[in-house]
Design a protein around this nucleic acid. Structure first.
Lengths: 263, 263
DNA sequence: GCGTTAATGTTAAAATTATAACATTTAGTG
DNA sequence: CACTAAATGTTATAATTTTAACATTAACGC
């Protein structure tokens, strides 16, 4: 097994160039383009670290949204996806024609976005790149992206005038996700730069929805951003959640539970 | 051969939901998800009109940039790609370690972006979603996205405080693209919302580079944004460009032509 | 309920892609 | 210049995906 190879890296760079503007390249053509055998390209891909993948004999950029997170729905993951999907279906029940939605970063709310195409007119405000990408494809949804410095870990942006930018917008409903929800320690996330936009959205929005799956209950993450009482609604997927929360003296949010039927 | 099938369409809709947020779905999992055999899914795809494709046993959204336009490198397309690639190679010669680059929207500068991974540290400022996506994958490049309202036609954002946001940044080099370059009528683009960020970048940057292929010469587009003299360098791919411009009395910009060797 | 037809399932064969093993070429070194 | 080892090519084999043909089930009209 060789350590590094300059020529190999050069080939991959060339191929990546070809794919940078989008599209796929058949292994056969890739080999021809680089004037080597298909096997060499295959080896390049396995030996060197690269952003490309071979998908059914075709070379694709692995980090492209339509390709990357290869949704390997094994049994567990399939059910996990179903859970995420159902959660978003419940959120959908709160969305109305003409709404201006603040949509938080993370993966929780992603399945919701394609559902937004069923509305005639909506506006989505977000500070997350993955959310923006999904929404940018919807012709009926106006997209406002709050920019700034990009944080790869959360695929989102941070800026010092995020609060001001959010306050200027007439946000109807804030859909907030979280990495931890605890009755005493409140609602928290992983990254500190998310705190500002989340808090600004909570402060501005007419209605505040916390969207979390049950696995987040009882968990505390480094960045605290709100108390459970700051939300009007908690949308979750666990049967026991309402009791769990209410028995512990938390009465503020209306909690939406699995009774809601999924189409 | 059946005419239409409600259930078939319903399955495809369900699968499309699953893929809407990006990713791929193995045929096996798609079949399981719909509770039918793989063959049925295959038939759905061939029978019904759909935006999905089967790529190496995996279901993908065919209209996603990384997947759809299957890059059939016929001779012409290959050479067209080569041209774009060469143009960006020339631009690359102007970029230095540690630069803060303003990168304009459009497709012209896209091939440049993956090349930026060769630097140790760079900062890219942009108001284009496609640029941001390409840059977000580069670990060595800091990304600043100027947000606002999304314009699908140019895959970019517009906002009324774009100028202020750009002025606050210490932009080293502005890489500007254009849809039209005319000696008398100046440099123009298609969309009016692009004018503000372009002009702000030109005003702020230390060095201003206009990057255009020769097909843009002599063309005037609706939105004027600068005179040719506002640029320090014009990077182009046409041999005749320097004479063409200089003979017409335009002496300001240094023009970079194909003499520069491509690796 | 019977007969017809669409819809789906099952299986086998063909085509394609992936892996592995070994052969050959190329580059570098003393 | 020979020696070594990496890099690439070639070929055979395995695994996977695609296609095709036929069997079975479900739906619908009479």
């Amino acid at each position: 097994m060789p350590t590094t190879n300059a020529r190999s890296a050069q080939r991959l760079a060339k191929l990546q160039e070809a794919l940078a503007s989008g599209g796929t390249l058949h292994l056969r053509d890739a080999a021809e383009l680089c004037d080597v055998s298909e096997m060499t390209i295959r080896r390049d891909l396995t030996t060197q670290p690269t952003a490309m993948t071979l998908l059914g004999g075709r070379l694709v950029m692995a980090n492209y949204p339509g390709v990357t997170p290869i949704y390997d729905l094994t049994e567990q993951q399939a059910s996990h996806y179903q859970a995420k999907y159902r959660l978003c279906q419940r959120v959908l029940a709160f969305i109305e024609e003409g709404d201006t939605l603040f949509i938080d970063c993370g993966s929780t709310l992603i399945p919701l976005l394609s559902q937004l195409s069923h509305f005639r007119e909506l506006t989505v405000v977000t500070y997350a790149l993955n959310v923006a990408n999904a929404v940018s494809a919807l012709p009926n949804v106006r997209l406002v992206l709050l920019g700034g410095l990009f944080y790869a870990a959360s695929q989102s942006f941070g800026s010092d005038n995020m609060t001001a930018a959010i306050e200027r917008l007439g946000i109807n409903k804030a859909l907030i996700s979280a990495a931890g929800v605890d009755l005493e320690r409140g609602v928290s996330c992983f990254h500190f730069h998310e705190v500002t936009p989340k808090q600004a959205a909570i402060a501005t929005a007419m209605q505040r929805l916390l969207v979390v799956d049950a696995s987040k209950f009882g968990v505390v993450r480094p960045a605290y951003f709100a108390a459970l009482e700051d939300f009007d609604v908690v949308v979750t997927d666990e049967e026991g959640a309402p009791q769990l929360l209410k028995e512990n003296g938390c009465v503020a949010p209306e909690i939406v539970v699995p009774e809601i039927t999924v189409a």
